[in-house]
């Protein structure tokens, strides 16, 4: 009689998709003596958006940055545990970090286009990674990426103008186009909408939903509503621990851990 079931089907990590893009186990991160992340085990699935939520300093961005070894550039940062991308240890000595960052693209909080033309912003990655055979193919890739990022219609007549001249929302979509131009498997997004107005935010969210068809997406966000809207899986971090992970619907309607409950309902912990 009452269709109010909070969750339909409790998919476990294993059931969601046969082979996860990322399989991370017991990941710990230290900044010098300070431990920022403790034994995080999480799978990131293809064609799904995984959102990471939690209060400031909980470790969600630290975890995100482990996935394309962005932490390498921080002095005194040490990562332990295993992070496998397609079964390959990304912290193995044989891993080419530049190649890894092409496979695992990243979009940041503040749009950061290169101080170059719109075309060059997107063409840069494919060119240095030698993805395009010739000029025609490069142009096709740029076109395609801008199209997928939902920006083509707005910029096709001014490809030679600087990317920094676009609006904030357009710049962010340009950064997404830049990330997908190198044909990544996973796209990491760290607060991609926090500098955008609600309309630009809605367009990015719509885009995230479309991109899910081709990529695995991990998004760190402070907006619980955004996490609830865009993701299929959600992980809640608190004090460097992954407290709870589950289907987004379950996390936001019926979280199992009291800390998750307190955080998402805006209560004192």
């Amino acid at each position: 009689m009452i269709a109010m079931q909070a969750t339909t089907g409790r998919a476990t990590d294993a059931a969601a998709s046969p082979v996860p893009a990322f399989m991370t186990r017991d990941v710990c991160v230290f900044y010098g003596q300070k431990q920022a992340l403790t034994n995080v085990s999480l799978d990131i699935h293809r064609n799904q958006v995984t959102s990471l939520i939690g209060p400031s300093g909980c470790g969600k961005s630290t975890y995100l940055r482990c996935l394309n070894r962005m932490n390498d550039i921080i002095d005194g940062c040490r990562v332990t545990g295993s992070i496998l991308l397609d079964g390959q240890d990304i912290y193995a000595g044989s891993m080419d970090v530049v190649h890894l960052r092409a496979r695992v693209g990243m979009v940041f909080q503040k749009p950061n286009p290169f101080p170059k033309s719109i075309f060059e912003n997107v063409a840069y990655g494919p060119r240095i990674h030698g993805i395009a055979k010739d000029k025609t193919e490069l142009e096709a890739i740029v076109h395609n990426s801008l199209e997928k990022a939902g920006l083509l219609a707005e910029v096709k007549d001014r490809m030679d103008q600087p990317g920094t001249g676009l609006s904030g929302g357009q710049q962010q979509r340009l950064c997404i186009a830049r990330a997908i131009a190198v044909q990544p498997e996973v796209i990491l997004m760290d607060e991609p909408c926090s500098a955008l107005d609600p309309i630009a935010t809605a367009r990015i969210e719509e885009l995230i939903d479309e991109l899910r068809e081709h990529f695995a997406i991990v998004i760190v966000t402070h907006s619980m509503q955004q996490a609830a809207r865009v993701s299929q899986r959600t992980g809640f971090f608190h004090l460097g621990i992954l407290v709870e992970t589950g289907d987004t619907e379950q996390i936001f309607t019926n979280p199992r851990d009291k800390r998750t409950q307190d955080y998402i309902t805006g209560r004192f912990g």
Binding site: M4, M224, Q225, A228, N254, Q261, T265
Partner: peptide
């Protein structure tokens, strides 16, 4: 409030 979890259940 755009309530979540228990709050959402309470209100609905």
């Amino acid at each position: 409030r755009q309530p979540m979890a228990k709050d959402l259940r309470e209100i609905v």
